Computed example of a mutant assay.
Amino acid sequence: MMTAIEVHPVKLGIANAYIVRQEGAIIVDTGDPGNEEAILDAAKGRGIRPKDVRLILLTHGHGDHAGSARGLRERTGAPVAVHRDDAEKLRYGNQGKLRPACLTGRILGPLFGGKKARYPPLDPEIVMGESFDLRPYGVDGTVVPTPGHTPGSVSVILAGGDVIVGDLIFSSIPAEKPCLPFWADDIGAVRESIALIRKRQPRTVYTGHGGPFPGKAIEGL
């Protein structure tokens, strides 16, 4: 029997990375460029050495989630995994144009575009398709496509009932309640992906910004 799954958020300014540990340790999302030290320091505080990291998993290819992927790969030697529909973002180190899905997205868009859209490029070792099993990396979980925010957005479904959804779900301003993302390539696909997550009846939903939220909090989305 595998040990309990631990999910440890790492606050990186307004973005979150996650250290997930069971029999092995993986890192989910990496923040902006230069955040690798903060993530590794957080891992060290949990007794996780760089060589203990088995996988670097990206929920999507935006710079505030993939920005330190190359730096972490260099420090840990762990492979980087991304969905095939966001892989080109990594290869070019360019997240592309953000598409506002609400007024907040239009207002904040300039803060996340321009230079923020670019980050150190890398060629991912693992390009995921329909689903991806994390058990070979020591974590009882599955990565599933949840497109909408970007075409290649994914979520991590963990056996204990927790879900890491990246930017599929945002935290509203100023109420800090779960809401639809401020930017989305396809808002209809976002709603379908959230419905998929709701069907899983998650215990806790970990988001790319703000959170976490109890699973029941996303029922109205």
Results as ranks from 00 to 15, higher is better:
residue 30 T to C: 14
residue 123 D to Y: 14
residue 174 P to Y: 09
residue 178 P to E: 04
residue 213 F to C: 12
residue 62 H to Y: 11
residue 33 P to H: 00
residue 129 G to T: 12
residue 176 E to Q: 15
residue 123 D to G: 07
residue 163 V to S: 04
residue 118 R to C: 11
residue 217 A to S: 14
residue 70 R to V: 13
residue 33 P to M: 05
residue 12 L to A: 07
residue 213 F to S: 07
residue 221 L to Y: 10
residue 155 S to K: 06
residue 151 P to F: 02
residue 87 A to F: 13
residue 55 L to R: 05
residue 21 R to P: 03
residue 177 K to I: 08
residue 161 G to A: 07
residue 40 L to T: 04
residue 188 G to T: 02
residue 17 A to L: 02
residue 97 K to Y: 02
residue 63 G to K: 03
residue 4 A to R: 12
residue 169 I to P: 05
residue 208 G to P: 09
residue 3 T to V: 14
residue 17 A to F: 02
residue 117 A to C: 12
residue 190 V to H: 00
residue 199 K to I: 07
residue 102 C to P: 01
residue 32 D to H: 09
residue 37 E to G: 07
residue 148 G to I: 00
residue 121 P to K: 00
residue 216 K to M: 10
residue 81 A to E: 06
residue 16 N to F: 13
residue 116 K to H: 05
residue 216 K to C: 13
residue 140 D to Y: 12
residue 81 A to S: 05
residue 7 V to C: 10
residue 66 A to F: 03
residue 191 R to W: 07
residue 6 E to Y: 12
residue 116 K to V: 04
residue 185 D to T: 03
residue 170 F to W: 15
residue 159 A to M: 15
residue 215 G to S: 09
residue 221 L to H: 09
residue 58 L to G: 03
residue 78 A to C: 13
residue 53 V to G: 03
residue 36 E to P: 05
residue 91 R to G: 02
residue 68 S to F: 04
residue 177 K to Y: 07
residue 26 I to Y: 14
residue 182 F to H: 14
residue 67 G to H: 11
residue 129 G to M: 02
residue 51 K to M: 09
residue 126 I to W: 08
residue 207 T to W: 06
residue 73 R to D: 06
residue 83 H to C: 04
residue 127 V to H: 06
residue 48 I to Q: 05
residue 115 K to Q: 10
residue 75 R to N: 08
residue 112 F to G: 07
residue 211 G to I: 04
residue 156 V to A: 02
residue 204 T to I: 15
residue 139 V to E: 07
residue 117 A to F: 00
residue 67 G to R: 06
residue 118 R to F: 15
residue 118 R to D: 04
residue 62 H to S: 08
residue 192 E to K: 04
residue 159 A to C: 08
residue 126 I to M: 13
residue 168 L to A: 04
residue 216 K to L: 10
residue 20 V to R: 10
residue 105 G to V: 00
residue 13 G to W: 08
residue 84 R to A: 13
residue 64 D to R: 05
residue 52 D to R: 13
residue 25 A to V: 06
residue 168 L to N: 01
residue 184 A to E: 00
residue 152 G to C: 05
residue 121 P to R: 05
